[in-house]
Write a protein that binds this DNA or RNA. Sequence first.
DNA 1: CATGAATGAGTGTTCATTCAT
DNA 2: CATGAATGAACACTCATTCAT
Lengths: 200, 200, 200, 200
Amino acid sequence: MPKIIENLEEEIAQTALELFRDNPYQNVSMRKIASEVGIAVGTLYNYYPNKWELYIGVFEESWRETYQVLKKSCQQSEQNYLQGYLELITEEMAAKKSIVRELFRYIMNDLEIGEEEQKQKFNRIRFPKVLINQIYELFVNILKKEFELELNKDDSNLYRLFTMIQTDIPLLDQNFADKSDNIQFLYQIISSYVVKKFNN
Amino acid sequence: MPKIIENLEEEIAQTALELFRDNPYQNVSMRKIASEVGIAVGTLYNYYPNKWELYIGVFEESWRETYQVLKKSCQQSEQNYLQGYLELITEEMAAKKSIVRELFRYIMNDLEIGEEEQKQKFNRIRFPKVLINQIYELFVNILKKEFELELNKDDSNLYRLFTMIQTDIPLLDQNFADKSDNIQFLYQIISSYVVKKFNN
Amino acid sequence: MPKIIENLEEEIAQTALELFRDNPYQNVSMRKIASEVGIAVGTLYNYYPNKWELYIGVFEESWRETYQVLKKSCQQSEQNYLQGYLELITEEMAAKKSIVRELFRYIMNDLEIGEEEQKQKFNRIRFPKVLINQIYELFVNILKKEFELELNKDDSNLYRLFTMIQTDIPLLDQNFADKSDNIQFLYQIISSYVVKKFNN
Amino acid sequence: MPKIIENLEEEIAQTALELFRDNPYQNVSMRKIASEVGIAVGTLYNYYPNKWELYIGVFEESWRETYQVLKKSCQQSEQNYLQGYLELITEEMAAKKSIVRELFRYIMNDLEIGEEEQKQKFNRIRFPKVLINQIYELFVNILKKEFELELNKDDSNLYRLFTMIQTDIPLLDQNFADKSDNIQFLYQIISSYVVKKFNN
DNA sequence: CATGAATGAGTGTTCATTCAT
DNA sequence: CATGAATGAACACTCATTCAT
């Protein structure tokens, strides 16, 4: 008794996102996703060729949204640019948990897949490079505005800083309860480094 | 098919370390470990009661060694304390990859294991708290000597700094090819923060 | 390799019954059942959550059928009640072998399962208490009609007699070829005891 | 460091008997037996070619002992022959549990071994036929003395009676708490049948 | 003759994927 | 396009048995 469901693709993505958010890849089964959405397992395969692509698709979409949120907020704010950025991204990441971890794993070149497959999977996941770059540019612009400095986005240390902060946000969030202290700490790390390094 | 194999325990630990180094827990099967060592699966169970204990055993031993290396080096060095520390730990971590990630996951409260089991597993892995604290104390002592400052190891921002650096070392190592630049960057991050924050 | 198999559930139950009939629990593997049915192992788990439930399911169903047969026959027969009962149950039990043994083991409080699990397994198998009681009541009614006696089903010796006969039927069937002699023997055992004991 | 242990064979048999007494065949591992005896697993194989032979050996020995006890008691008693027999064998069987069950299984033609092996195993277990016959003769002699009747041990119903009683003793013992009532019940079953059948 | 580490076929169970309906 | 029963390779783990020591 096949039925046509409206916005099924969206619903799958949403449900899968929630599941992958709270559980590591291996602990989320296709059965679970399907039953949570309320459809048959087979149906998932009409939208994604396999579990990995479903995972990546969700991952992709989720970060795209985060980027939109960040961008919009950036354009609207008039001051406290960096603090705003840190607060927003902390929030976004807290809402993602395991997806964030995935970004970390991605950065760490570590995917939960066997060796032979890694090559092709890697190509498939290359996409977020674009996204990450977009967020990076946002980050550089914020620093420029915050510290009123001329910064070159091709400076490798600036990219180091970005990479580091990106990873440390969820890290601190998980390990230190006081969220505003965490943001304060990161703010100081960034400002003391940037000011000392680029302000001369 | 020799019946008694010399140094088998060591060899298992070594091989398992390498496998867990390069692959996440779920992707390393007991079969794989056994075949890599060149023994029967059953033999693994003569040395470790189950996969998890094997994993933890390897993890534990590996970090214990790292601590010994760091401690010895600390005691011997006369200058460039912080740079030495960063170099050494970068090296150690590069040799560990996924085991490092495990420390990260541990810090992130995320283990690739079902929820019910997590509690007891966690108790089992509690041990590294001790190790981490030992390394943390080393770190604080190094900062004291390097910057000739009075630092209180109970300062939460100092612990934030340590947590952050510990995670960033492998992160940068994976993402930026120039290792001495990485260390230089971290050195500047630490020094600009510590000097600005604690030197008054 | 047909994708939908007709009456698969029934076929699994039938095959499993035959296997458990001829072999003890531990000697019947899921692989064996599957290959005997001509399906994949995984398919078994679409019908039963695990081996034990498959076992119990088969056991349960089989005894339920036996009870129905006995009850129907009882209601229809006009004379030779006891002889009819003995013949019927002999036949039923002959068709069951190891499942009968399972009832015996159940009565003997002996299941081929580890100690810790026994408690919960036992609760799961408690059901046949109901069935056994139903058959016992049938048995008492038959004795009443056969010997025209007032019998109290709460008499512990009557229940001893029932328990004994129930076990002896398959026992004699296995060990003495002449089936009508077996039934004759049991008839005499029962009648001489009941008449002497309760007829006064 | 091989050591010579006195009476090791005896000690193995004793320990194995205790284990098989309380647990079904499949739940008693060679490791368990060895560790209980305090020897290495390999040593067991110096005394028994495999687990099954060890099991049978123990089984055999145990029943041989029971026969000796019964025989001795028979020769000494002056009255209440049957009651004495029933009491004694109840006691013996209660001390054996799973070994008794094994006799039952043997009688039921059911061994916990795969089909192919059954044939040879069967030959190997044929031995207790002799033992069972010896006990049967004891039983017939007791009935003769008890009821002062001429009984022919080749009467198939007499052998049926013996088989039945032998099985019912542990059965009642397991299911009905009052041991003297159990023996009383069996006594009545036997006496009412024997008197009615053979006393004319 | 005792040892116990090594063996490997075997177990119950899971789950991504397929495909007839 | 939706279904979900069927698939079977894969998993962690067990244990009777062997054999170099």
